[in-house]
Design a protein around this nucleic acid. Structure first.
Lengths: 214, 214
DNA sequence: GAAAATTGCTACAGATCTGTAGCAACATAG
DNA sequence: CTATGTTGCTACAGATCTGTAGCAATTTTC
């Protein structure tokens, strides 16, 4: 059913030498490829070494163990994601700024989804379910999640005041927005043609237009 | 750092005999316990056998391999979930029935979340990220997801007609509802005290009350 | 073009898991 | 209380993975 992908030569032909920093990047690339193809749980030191055309001790020279390798993968993805998002996200308005909360939300969602569209693999690493990753890593992701939620609650709270109308459960609303944004991102990663950023933008606008402004 | 949990007796004391059907249930229970504690990927034939106080051949007598064991786990959870939901979900109204779409949505969400609250472990199996499960199983879950989505789209479409007002992207709306419901379920599983069913019900009502009825 | 430093390899020891074959203990019918 | 079927066990063979020690190939430096 399944064709063997790499017929490893019996005599390993002494892999090209590489500076540690470069080798590290290459190994992370390899690990990422495996993680995106077969999930985090399929990432092993042995597998990465083989796929990179190198022996295990080389990998152990750069990563103490599997956990450190996966941590490296995540840290890299996070920093790339942040670098992309930081300049794109709309600034949080001060209490005296006159900004339309609806427009702010639409812009935020659009910026987020555009980032996902522009660097899908990085975001796949972040949005992949973290099963198979050591508990410590899952915790790390949860921590980020909590931080984002905290900021989002502040923003939502500000927006509701500004918008007026009936008071909604701020925590649930913030979580809902985050959940929907992540869901949209996953959809976009799955089928970017059927679910382009613009479609989500239009939907968000329509939805907000339908919300009472009392 | 970590204490060994079970000091397996060196001479296995001949496990109590059991009819195949009972043994099967017991093994599924054991597998479920492991899956819920450490994730699907941690479920192995060997691990289940040990945890059940039995040897591997006993497990192989009932399940051909890991995939079949996990499939059994999922099938059981699905049928339990369905048995719970079927009598609780509000009936889909015919085209001529006069039902309030908002009330229908609120009732549906409440029924779903109540089911999750009443049998959390079953739903944990279903809502756990399926990494570590064989691809075939993930596909099975996807199929269910698609079926639910199809029904939901019909319902949403009916509700929008009935409700009138601006037309929204039906597919995205249906997916959004499903995503939010699953997110709510996960939250409820995580912290049922902080996130009781009633809280989600109230939130849904408030949110719908804020949607324009033009 | 040798000496020194760097980078990669082979080889071993051990853990955990998969499946299967053949034997041992138990339960029930007669 | 023995015969027969059922249920569970031990033991093997093999795969994949973890780490580490010590050696070999390749650059770089002088």
């Amino acid at each position: 059913m399944r064709v063997v992908t790499t017929a490893t030569p019996l005599k390993r032909p002494y892999a090209a030498r590489m500076a540690p920093a470069d080798r590290r990047e290459q190994l992370l690339d390899t690990a990422q490829e495996i993680a995106l193809e077969r999930g985090f749980h399929a990432v092993t030191i042995d597998g990465v070494a083989k796929a990179a055309g190198v022996t295990r001790p080389v990998v152990y020279g750069l990563f103490a163990d599997r956990a450190e390798l996966l941590a490296g993968l995540l840290v890299r993805a996070e920093s790339r994601a942040l670098a992309q998002l930081a300049p794109a996200l709309p600034a949080v308005p001060g209490p005296e700024d006159y900004v339309d909360p609806d427009a702010l939300l639409v812009d935020g969602v659009t910026a987020y989804l555009s980032a996902v569209r522009d660097d899908p693999d990085t975001w796949r690493v972040i949005l992949l379910p973290p099963e198979g990753a050591p508990a410590e890593l899952a915790d790390r992701l949860h921590a980020v999640h909590r931080d984002v939620l905290r900021e989002l609650r502040v923003l939502v709270s500000w927006g509701m005041d500004r918008r007026g109308g009936a008071a909604l459960d701020v925590d649930l609303f913030a979580r809902g927005v985050l959940t929907l944004a992540e869901g949209a991102a996953r959809l976009l990663l799955q089928a970017p043609d059927r679910y382009p950023v613009e479609r989500f933008r239009a939907f968000t606008e329509d939805l907000l237009a339908g919300l009472l402004r009392s």
